[in-house]
Simulated assay, not measured.
Amino acid sequence: MAYKITGQCITCNLCDSVCPTDAIKKVNGSPWIDPELCTNCIGSIHTVPQCIAGCPTCDGCVQISTDYWESWFSTYERLVKKLTKKQDYWEKWFSVYSHKFSEQLQKRQQHQATF
């Protein structure tokens, strides 16, 4: 997770209402960003994270984590989960690809056999 809600939060709930993935949850009355749902607004229509854009504190009760590796592994795990959920896609792709490749190989062998 790249973003965390700090102690400067005034619990205005604006970040919750603008989050496109509903990643901001309430835990013991305090907002918390769920790392499994947060996409940092990457791949969406937004150019900046909406939790930061909607925060009225200006100083930022939502801050970027400074731990590079935590952010890297979080992004990696999120992308791997997206890929593994598409297992049927890759199996279908491989099946179609191998079928087309076999057809082309047979055509080439038949073509070479005629000469």
Results as ranks from 00 to 15, higher is better:
residue 74 S to E: 08
residue 81 K to D: 05
residue 34 D to N: 15
residue 69 W to F: 05
residue 22 D to G: 14
residue 36 E to M: 11
residue 51 C to D: 08
residue 18 V to G: 00
residue 46 H to P: 02
residue 75 T to E: 06
residue 69 W to C: 02
residue 99 H to C: 12
residue 16 D to I: 05
residue 105 L to H: 12
residue 20 P to Q: 05
residue 77 E to C: 04
residue 27 V to P: 02
residue 107 K to S: 11
residue 115 F to V: 12
residue 35 P to K: 12
residue 63 Q to S: 07
residue 5 I to R: 04
residue 20 P to D: 04
residue 76 Y to M: 05
residue 62 V to I: 15
residue 26 K to C: 09
residue 40 N to W: 10
residue 82 K to S: 02
residue 47 T to S: 15
residue 22 D to M: 08
residue 56 P to S: 00
residue 40 N to Y: 09
residue 46 H to C: 09
residue 1 M to I: 07
residue 4 K to C: 10
residue 69 W to P: 03
residue 81 K to T: 00
residue 75 T to L: 07
residue 73 F to M: 02
residue 12 C to H: 05
residue 75 T to V: 06
residue 29 G to E: 10
residue 10 I to P: 00
residue 95 S to H: 15
residue 70 E to N: 05
residue 2 A to E: 06
residue 82 K to L: 02
residue 108 R to E: 14
residue 9 C to G: 00
residue 22 D to S: 13
residue 14 L to V: 01
residue 51 C to Y: 03
residue 50 Q to I: 04
residue 88 D to A: 14
residue 18 V to Y: 02
residue 58 C to I: 13
residue 39 T to E: 07
residue 74 S to L: 03
residue 40 N to I: 04
residue 26 K to R: 13
residue 59 D to K: 08
residue 3 Y to E: 06
residue 72 W to T: 02
residue 45 I to K: 03
residue 106 Q to A: 10
residue 19 C to Y: 03
residue 42 I to D: 10
residue 108 R to Q: 14
residue 4 K to M: 11
residue 11 T to S: 02
residue 86 K to M: 13
residue 42 I to F: 08
residue 8 Q to D: 02
residue 73 F to H: 00
residue 61 C to F: 06
residue 39 T to R: 08
residue 42 I to T: 07
residue 76 Y to V: 09
residue 25 K to V: 15
residue 42 I to P: 02
residue 82 K to W: 01
residue 61 C to R: 01
residue 85 K to Q: 10
residue 71 S to W: 08
residue 86 K to Q: 15
residue 36 E to W: 10
residue 82 K to Q: 05
residue 99 H to A: 14
residue 33 I to F: 13
residue 86 K to D: 15
residue 110 Q to D: 12
residue 39 T to C: 09
residue 53 A to S: 13
residue 29 G to N: 11
residue 29 G to A: 12
residue 64 I to Y: 09
residue 58 C to K: 10
residue 11 T to D: 01
residue 55 C to Y: 05
residue 22 D to P: 06
residue 26 K to E: 13
residue 4 K to P: 09
residue 106 Q to H: 07
residue 68 Y to C: 03
residue 42 I to S: 10
residue 111 H to N: 14
residue 22 D to H: 13
residue 33 I to H: 04
residue 35 P to H: 13
residue 43 G to S: 03
residue 88 D to S: 13
residue 12 C to D: 05
residue 16 D to L: 09
residue 65 S to R: 13
residue 100 K to S: 09
residue 94 F to A: 15
residue 111 H to C: 12
residue 52 I to D: 00
residue 16 D to V: 05
residue 57 T to W: 07
residue 104 Q to H: 07
residue 11 T to N: 01
residue 26 K to F: 15
residue 40 N to T: 03
residue 32 W to K: 12
residue 8 Q to S: 01
residue 54 G to F: 04
residue 103 E to G: 06
residue 61 C to Q: 02
